[in-house]
Simulated scan of single mutants.
Amino acid sequence: MKRCFIKLISLLVVTGVCAFSYPVLATVSTIKKPSIVFISPDFAESQFFNIVNKIMRDAADDLGISLEILYADDNPTTTIKIGTSVLNRTTRPDYLVMVNEVVATAKLMKLANQLGQKTFLFNADYQEGQYDQYQSKTWSGSLLPDDEQAGYQLAKVLVTEARKKKLSDKNGKINIIGINGDHRSRVSISRKKGLQVFVDENNDVELLHIVNAYWSKRRATETVENLLKLFPETNLIWSASDYMASGAAIGAENMNRVIGKDTLTCGIDWLPSTFEEIKDQRLSCSIGGHIFDGAWLMVLLHDQFNHFYPDFIQKRTHFSSINNENLSGIERIFDQELWKKIDYKKFSKAYNQSFSTSHFGSQLLIDELSTFSNTLNKERHVFNNVN
Rank of each mutant, 00 (worst) to 15 (best):
Phe122Lys: 04
Thr105Cys: 12
Pro76Lys: 10
Asp94Lys: 11
Asn100Pro: 10
Ala112Asn: 05
Val102Tyr: 15
Asp62Asn: 10
Leu96Cys: 06
Trp139Asp: 13
Asp132Tyr: 03
Thr138Gly: 11
Leu108His: 03
Glu68Ala: 09
Thr105Ile: 08
Thr119Gly: 04
Pro76Gly: 03
Ile80Gly: 00
Glu128Trp: 00
Ala124Tyr: 11
Phe122Ser: 05
Glu128Cys: 15
Val102Gln: 15
Glu128Val: 12
Gly129Gln: 02
Arg92Thr: 05
Pro76Thr: 00
Phe120Met: 06
Tyr71Pro: 08
Gln133Asp: 12
Asp94His: 03
Arg92Asp: 08
Asn88Val: 07
Met98Cys: 15
Ala72Gly: 05
Tyr71Lys: 12
Asp125Leu: 12
Gly83His: 01
Asp146Thr: 05
Asn88Glu: 05
Asp73Glu: 14
Leu108Pro: 06
Thr79Met: 07
Lys107Val: 15
Asn75Cys: 08
Ile65Gln: 00
Gln135Lys: 14
Val97Arg: 01
Tyr71Gly: 00
Gln133Ile: 01
Thr84Tyr: 06
Thr79Cys: 07
Asp62Ser: 11
Val103Gly: 15
Thr138Asp: 04
Glu68Ile: 00
Leu108Val: 02
Ser142Arg: 01
Lys110Ser: 12
Tyr71Glu: 01
Gly129Glu: 03
Thr90Tyr: 00
Leu96Gln: 01
Lys137Cys: 10
Lys118Val: 14
Asn100Trp: 11
Ser136Ile: 14
Val99Lys: 09
Ser142Asp: 15
Pro93Thr: 03
Thr79Phe: 04
Ser142Phe: 08
Arg89Lys: 14
Tyr126Cys: 06
Thr90Phe: 12
Leu96Val: 09
Thr138Phe: 02
Leu108Asp: 05
Ala106His: 15
Gln114Pro: 08
Thr77Trp: 10
Asn75Ala: 05
Pro145Ser: 07
Ile65Gly: 00
Ile69Cys: 00
Gly116Thr: 08
Asn113Lys: 13
Ala106Lys: 13
Ser140Phe: 06
Ser85Asp: 15
Leu121Lys: 07
Lys137Ala: 11
Leu67Lys: 05
Ser85Gln: 07
Val102His: 15
Thr90Lys: 13
Asn113Arg: 15
Asp74Arg: 09
Lys81His: 15
Gly64Ser: 05
Asn100Phe: 09
Ser142Met: 02
Ser136Gln: 10
Phe120Ser: 05
Leu111Phe: 13
Lys110Asp: 14
Gln127Tyr: 12
Leu115Glu: 13
Ser140Thr: 06
Tyr131Cys: 02
Lys81Ser: 11
Val97Asp: 03
Ser66Ala: 11
Met98Gly: 00
Leu111Pro: 12
Thr119Tyr: 01
Leu115Met: 09
Asp125Lys: 09
Gln130Asn: 12
Lys137Ser: 14
Asp61Cys: 07
Ala106Asp: 15
Leu144Lys: 07
